[in-house]
């Protein structure tokens, strides 16, 4: 574990991304202690102030400190993205590995249903689902989890299919081992590597999806300081109060970049074929 982190830091890109992620994680965890102002309470007399030593990133149309709102939004965006992807990965791995191991008609049914889900563009499906579920941050997370689910199901199934053919699974069957044990003890542990890689590649995408849903009013509802929703109101002020949407956009950009670079780094690290 320590050795892998060292290897990540050695590369300039992944090293930078790793440090950014550490900062982002720190902010997400400690944001209530770090914000100089309340991210929610309005203060109309301070509306749309330019960046300065009192308000580093300026204030919004209701006089809230944008710096504080971005810090508070970190927890929401990153937390919800993590929750959505982990949910998709957990459920997808479970269903996918059983599907691959058991095969037969169950496998057919499950795989055809993933075909249906994969037939829609990710964003369109996420929009439709969160609109149907009703606009809220939890529903947005669920929508993203459902959109991402088939990827994990297919990945886990492909891996489970090849692991089912290994001699150690065959050996286990000669001891009279039950299917549940084989999936839990042999198949899932051996397919985790590609799943972890996929998770690290998907988180950046999920943050972007949440921001998109928020921007379109389908995610977090005001006054929650969610990045997408902040840009949504902020972009009306782009010409005269450029700082309002710009800093928020930069926060999304940096976070997504950091996650994507780290995702690639983890893939290179864990994929035996990429190394050496």
């Amino acid at each position: 574990m320590l050795k892998s982190i060292k290897q990540l830091v050695k590369n300039r890109f992944t090293g930078g991304a790793f440090i950014s992620l550490c900062v982002i994680a720190f902010i997400a965890i400690f944001s209530p202690l770090l914000t100089p102002y309340s991210p929610i309470d309005t203060k109309p007399e301070d509306r749309l102030l330019a960046p300065g030593h009192l308000h580093y990133f300026g204030t919004d149309e209701l006089g809230r400190d944008i710096f504080s709102r971005i810090l508070a939004g970190t927890r929401i965006s990153v937390g919800i993205a993590l929750f959505a992807i982990l949910l998709a990965a957990f459920v997808g791995t479970f269903i996918g590995s059983f599907s691959g191991f058991i095969g037969r008609w169950i496998d057919q049914v499950i795989m055809r249903s993933t075909d249906v889900l994969l037939a829609f563009p990710t964003l369109v499906l996420a929009l439709a689902l969160s609109a149907a579920l009703g606009p809220s941050i939890v529903n947005a997370a669920l929508a993203i989890a459902i959109v991402k689910l088939p990827i994990y199901m297919r990945l886990a199934r492909t891996q489970a299919l090849s692991i089912s053919q290994t001699l150690y699974v065959k050996s286990a069957r000669t001891f009279g081992v039950k299917s549940g044990w084989i999936v839990r003890r042999h198949i899932v542990p051996n397919l985790l590597t590609p799943i972890v890689i996929q998770i690290s590649l998907d988180i950046g995408d999920a943050i972007l999806l949440i921001a998109t849903l928020g921007f379109l009013g389908l995610g977090a509802q005001p006054p929650t300081p969610e990045w997408g929703a902040m840009i949504s109101t902020g972009w009306n002020y782009l010409i005269d109060q450029w700082w309002y949407p710009t800093f928020t956009g930069a926060a999304i950009f940096i976070t997504v970049m950091a996650f994507n670079i780290i995702g690639d780094g983890i893939r290179d690290l864990l994929d035996p074929k990429a190394g050496e």
């Binding site: 065959k170 050996s171 000669t174 001891f175 009279g176 051996n190």
Partner: peptide, 22 residues
């Protein structure tokens, strides 16, 4: 009912017959 444990097997390829994670 199969007498699991009374008949055991050793396969050819020891690289693949042991679960690498255990």
């Amino acid at each position: 009912s199969f007498p699991y444990g009374d008949i055991q097997v050793v396969f050819q390829d020891p690289r693949s017959s042991l679960d690498p994670r255990m």
